[in-house]
Amino acid sequence: MTLDFAPVWGGLPELLKGTVVTIEVTAAAFLLSAVLGLLVGIIRLNPARRVLYGIASAYVAFIRGTPLLVQLFLLFFGLPQFGILLPAWLCGVIGLGIYSGSYVSEVVRGAIQSIDRGQMEAARSLGMSYREAMWEVVLPQAFRRMLPPLGNETIALIKNSALVSLLTIDDVMREGQRIISTSFRALEVYIAVALIYFILTNAATWILRQLEKRMTVERG
């Protein structure tokens, strides 16, 4: 058996276009998951606010307890039954964002809870409101501790994004499959696709590590 990478080279423009789509979908989903994770993580700190806490906990339990693929299909094939017809890319972004957000919320909650209680007390004793104390004092410290686990979540998000190819989104995975359908060179093309994901995940890890380093230096 010989490896023939000619179809990969020939399909490179399509693969790169797909890579851009993968990056776009992942980046948008990352932003959604960050906002969602922060909100849900903070809500889950305080069981006293029962309704909000209940909703947030149900969200985390449901999303973490069911397959991402099923969630994506619910959005893409299920919602139209209610007359809600979202474009494929939006289903992909929302599905990935909601999924990743449930994990990010646990990262956020854990990091905040790891900050010494005295920090919140000191801020409140100076007259800051809960929100001000959270924003000024607790979150900046918690953020540093979120970065390493957030790196894991980002890697998972990038890899999970391959599933959106099943929603007809032309990401790098789907572009690869398209090339295979005409060239029948599955091994070579999937190797190329894997390599692209490898580069993306490591680039994301590198960026987060730089951020982590910079924040450590800033603290002095």
Binding site: Q119, V137, R219
Partner: peptide, 17 residues
Amino acid sequence: LRAETGMVFQSFNLFPH
């Protein structure tokens, strides 16, 4: 009212960042 009531803690609780 807390703003007008200064509090000093045993463990300082300075903001490290």
